[in-house]
Amino acid sequence: MTNAEITSLEGRRFAVVGSGYMGGGIAQVLALGGATVALADISEEIAVKNYERLLTESDQFVADGLFPAGATELLRVNLRPAASIEEAVADAEFIEEAVPEILAIKHETLARISAAARPDAVIGSNTSTISIATLAEAVQGPERFLGVHYSNPAPFIPGVEIIGHAGTSAATIGTARGLVEAGGKHTASVADVTGFVLNRLQYALFHEAAQVVEAGIATPEDVDTLVRTTFGFRLPFFGPFAIADMAGLDVYNFCYASLQTGFPERFATPKILTDLTDAGKLGTKTGGGFLDVPAERLPELIAYRNRAYVGMQKLLDELGPAPIN
């Protein structure tokens, strides 16, 4: 089964093992998408308690306009607490493990899941830090196992990392991507390396920000202001490669050289950037770069960019400042 063949979650049977904040949010996403979802934890009592919490939470989200009208009623129909892990996964075609980030707990849980699940069930882990290959050691049928990493809060963050290990089948990756996308999310397939991609990028930014503060260059408040109001302002619309293409890869190449006067090792020019600039592929202005946007589409792209940024500022003005201070 490929992701192109999956258009709806209606009638599909899922299980989420781990009913806490992340697991509960994932269960809400899947159930609101139309799937029948069994929610399990270390005991039926905990699963029931968290199920009730999710319904109460949904009522508040509806009242706040964050969930559509009727969401809580739909959750009552599609989501249920299970008596045990084994009962939850018995007839599920997709199972998401979302227990604490402790290897022993995950191994024990994944062993129970894979022993009780259908042999053709896809099993995903919501781990954000642990090697998928290491987790797969506890799974019967490791070819059906992969990372399916939702972000917090799961109902409202649209991106999901799909992480296969060396033994994950292509069919498993395709099915997982299709099911997650049918639930209204965007997927990106990445390799099983330390930090995957999401956290590798997120922590790289935090690491540099922390060094700026430690060196007395700026305060945490000023760093956050710059990130929010400059390059971070672009990120809801464009990723780093699109931004680089629009800025000009020759400009990026020059900026790396400038940064190297102060930080020669930390800001070594990436080879993929040098290769493109040496080939005369400088981004949108030449019609070739990382994303190969045709030059004739540049006016359309710039017009979209400008509308997007004005729209973002209007949204921020409407919301007002975050209640941090």
Results as ranks from 00 to 15, higher is better:
residue 214 E to N: 11
residue 275 D to G: 12
residue 245 D to T: 11
residue 16 V to P: 00
residue 198 L to V: 00
residue 321 P to N: 02
residue 102 I to R: 07
residue 24 G to N: 01
residue 280 G to N: 05
residue 81 P to L: 06
residue 9 L to H: 04
residue 29 V to F: 14
residue 263 F to M: 08
residue 136 A to Y: 00
residue 5 E to T: 06
residue 64 D to C: 10
residue 296 E to R: 13
residue 90 A to W: 09
residue 209 A to W: 05
residue 182 A to D: 09
residue 67 F to K: 14
residue 11 G to N: 12
residue 223 V to H: 15
residue 12 R to M: 03
residue 2 T to V: 13
residue 14 F to P: 03
residue 245 D to Q: 13
residue 189 S to I: 03
residue 167 G to I: 07
residue 171 A to F: 09
residue 322 A to Q: 07
residue 40 A to E: 00
residue 37 V to C: 06
residue 45 E to H: 12
residue 93 E to N: 10
residue 166 A to H: 15
residue 223 V to P: 11
residue 97 E to R: 00
residue 277 T to A: 10
residue 279 A to P: 15
residue 120 D to M: 09
residue 298 L to N: 13
residue 238 F to Y: 14
residue 53 R to L: 04
residue 51 Y to A: 05
residue 178 G to K: 01
residue 157 I to N: 04
residue 110 L to Q: 02
residue 259 L to Q: 10
residue 254 F to Q: 15
residue 256 Y to D: 05
residue 236 P to T: 11
residue 25 G to C: 01
residue 275 D to W: 12
residue 207 H to E: 09
residue 266 R to V: 02
residue 149 H to D: 05
residue 118 R to L: 10
residue 53 R to C: 02
residue 296 E to M: 12
residue 181 E to F: 03
residue 209 A to P: 07
residue 59 D to I: 09
residue 110 L to A: 03
residue 44 E to R: 14
residue 230 T to G: 08
residue 43 S to V: 08
residue 69 A to Y: 11
residue 69 A to E: 15
residue 148 V to W: 01
residue 81 P to R: 01
residue 70 G to V: 13
residue 323 P to A: 04
residue 205 L to Q: 03
residue 118 R to K: 15
residue 304 Y to N: 06
residue 24 G to R: 00
residue 260 Q to H: 09
residue 238 F to R: 14
residue 79 L to G: 02
residue 199 N to C: 12
residue 167 G to K: 08
residue 121 A to T: 06
residue 304 Y to F: 10
residue 285 K to Y: 11
residue 155 P to D: 05
residue 80 R to Q: 10
residue 269 T to W: 03
residue 201 L to D: 00
residue 195 G to H: 09
residue 137 E to H: 01
residue 111 A to P: 03
residue 129 T to C: 02
residue 229 T to K: 07
residue 10 E to C: 12
residue 187 T to V: 05
residue 184 G to E: 02
residue 73 E to S: 13
residue 279 A to R: 14
residue 41 D to M: 04
residue 88 A to D: 05
residue 170 A to Q: 10
residue 18 G to Q: 02
residue 48 V to H: 08
residue 51 Y to E: 07
residue 16 V to M: 00
residue 152 N to H: 11
residue 215 A to K: 15
residue 208 E to N: 04
residue 318 E to L: 11
residue 319 L to G: 15
residue 84 S to A: 14
residue 2 T to Y: 13
residue 298 L to V: 14
residue 296 E to P: 14
residue 292 D to Y: 15
residue 213 V to T: 11
residue 114 S to V: 01
residue 291 L to I: 13
residue 34 G to L: 08
residue 132 I to T: 02
residue 291 L to W: 08
residue 84 S to D: 07
residue 69 A to H: 12
residue 46 I to C: 07
residue 243 I to P: 09
residue 23 G to F: 02
residue 208 E to P: 03
residue 49 K to G: 05
residue 244 A to Y: 07
residue 217 I to C: 15
residue 301 L to M: 13
